[in-house]
Design a protein around this nucleic acid. Structure first.
Length: 473
RNA sequence: GGUGGGUUGGCCGAGAGGCGAGGCAACGGACUGCAAAUCCGUCUACACGGGUUCAAAUCCCGUACCCACCUCCA
């Protein structure tokens, strides 16, 4: 694939403009993505974020960058403690179980594992270190109410609010702790003192301020610094993370003398009936449940066919439509494979696709470009132009690959069960198809259609092609 | 109270001053014994009211409605 590193443009939420991506080091890109707080089963909204940044990563790699992709897991937080207490399980057991669920969900939609996935609990020394730096710099203070909390001093950092253009005076006060220990109600906790009565002893780590645990999204500042250095290229997360965390992360980091991220990317929500999914009830939108209706690759196509900064109103109708649109692409590749034996890898994305992706990851336009190439390919298929089919198919495969949607990617579970089972079904279907062929030969159309209906009733579609009938599940 | 985003054809979903994204559905045609698949064609939309301009879905002003964020939810 050609390298065109200078042409990518990204929308930076911090400056609210789309500008050329200029990496700190030529040919390299360091990305930090705010991962999940592992407190509950992953739903489609959670995985959208992962898919969006997975596409960013794949496009950077396809464009010739060497990508360092760090995505954290927050495995200690108020909510984890609260939910585990409700369920009567250890907080770490809950966090671990949810992390496995998340891994499974992400694998099912072909999200590449990050280069490294640091967990908050594994980085307490780095966090303590950062908090100490902030105190030394005069931007944080230990509460003097004996709580063991440490707060970021919002008033000490004049740039606080810049990222989201808010003035400290207009903000609502933080409700994360008893305001008595704070100098200003907007100050937020960097470190939370252990509450011996109400919190498990396992949820505390030693610190200069007594036993406690990481507060706020301080772990992101600390871990991004550890693995990507004081300055790195891209920070990604959901829009909800637009006000507090980046603001705080940036404040935490810059106040400690670290430049932090050059570009801030934020994906928009998936909502249901206007309601943010994290608040919606029921589990019909949990990833495993959605995957009972469509395949992982189809769910991923649905997500990729909307721009990452556009709000998506989730609906099963739209999901089904996306699935049929995807099958059109997939079907072309199948037919091309039948003709060519196999579709070569290493094809070239078409120019429209490249332009679309370079323009702030314009996946909708990129998908439209794929459809155009598929149309050309189908025409070539109809006219029996094998060379043209090869070119189109290889290109389609390459483009789908960038979006993580190559049906031939071994990351996808093989459809229709094992090869052995496929063989069994094939021999049964072939028997019926032979009967149908005989009936057609005899122009006994009623008999031929009855056989086709019988096969269809078993969930198998038959289509007649120039080279004979083909069946698919 | 503060901040940001949105409203596009039957549906989903791009675009961001002129040159009709794309998909799904529907309809017509080609192909087919009939289908399926595929191809060709049809369906000329931008919340509302003003304004700027030779030209506005796109810019400006106003209105309505929706959504999100404002302390730990992607």
């Amino acid at each position: 694939m050609t390298e065109h590193q200078s042409r990518l443009r990204l929308h930076d939420t911090a400056t609210r403009e789309t500008r050329d991506f200029v990496p700190l080091q030529p040919g390299k890109a360091g990305i930090y993505v705010c991962g999940l707080t592992v407190q509950s089963e992953p739903h489609v909204g959670h995985v959208r974020s992962a898919v969006n940044f997975d596409v960013l990563r794949r496009w950077l790699e396809a464009s010739g960058y060497e990508v360092d992709f760090i995505r954290n897991v927050t495995d200690i937080a108020d909510k984890i403690l609260a939910k585990s207490a409700e369920q009567g399980v250890h907080w770490y057991a809950l966090a671990q179980r949810m992390q496995r669920e998340l891994d499974k969900a992400l694998a099912s939609i072909n999200v590449l594992p990050p280069t490294y996935e640091p967990a908050a609990t594994g980085h307490v020394p780095e966090i303590v270190d950062l908090v100490q730096q902030l105190i030394a710099a005069g931007h944080a203070y230990a509460a003097d109410d004996g709580s063991g909390d440490v707060y970021f001093d919002v008033r000490s950092y004049p740039e606080y609010g810049d990222l989201t253009r808010q003035r400290v005076d207009d903000m609502e006060p933080a409700g994360d702790a008893d305001p008595r220990g704070k100098r200003d109600p907007r100050d937020f906790a960097l470190w939370k003192g252990h509450k011996a009565g109400s919190e498990p002893a396992t949820a505390a780590w030693p610190s200069p301020w007594g036993p406690g645990r990481p507060g706020w999204h301080i772990e992101c500042s600390a871990m991004a610094g550890k693995y990507l250095g004081p300055a790195f290229d891209i920070h990604g997360g959901g829009v909800d993370l637009r006000f507090p965390p980046p603001e705080n992360e940036q404040a935490q980091s810059r106040a400690a003398g670290r430049p932090f991220a050059s570009y801030w990317l934020h994906n928009a929500w998936i909502t249901t009936a206007g309601e943010k999914m994290s608040k919606s009830l029921g589990n019909s939108l949990l990833v495993p449940s959605v995957l009972e209706r469509v395949r992982g690759i189809e769910l991923r196509y649905y997500m990729v066919s909307a721009h990452y900064r556009s709000h998506v109103e989730f609906s099963f109708e739209a999901l089904d439509e996306a699935a049929s649109a995807f099958r059109r692409l997939e079907h072309f590749l199948e037919r091309a494979t039948d003709l060519l034996g196999e579709v070569p890898t290493g094809g070239m994305p078409c120019a429209d696709f490249v332009t679309a992706m370079d323009d702030d990851l314009g996946t909708p336009a990129a998908v439209a470009a794929i459809h155009e190439v598929v149309r050309e390919g189908n025409r070539a298929l109809a006219s029996g132009d094998a060379a043209a089919v090869r070119g189109s198919a290889a290109s389609v495969r390459a483009m789908l690959g960038v979006l993580g949607l190559d049906p031939a990617d071994p990351a996808w579970p093989t459809a229709g069960g094992s090869d052995r089972l496929t063989g069994v079904v094939d021999s049964l279907v072939q028997g019926l198809l032979a009967e149908r062929a005989a009936a057609r030969e005899a122009k006994d159309w009623a008999r031929a259609d009855a056989i086709r209906d019988q096969i269809k009733a078993a969930g198998i579609e038959v289509e007649d092609t120039p080279t004979g009938p083909k069946w698919s599940v």
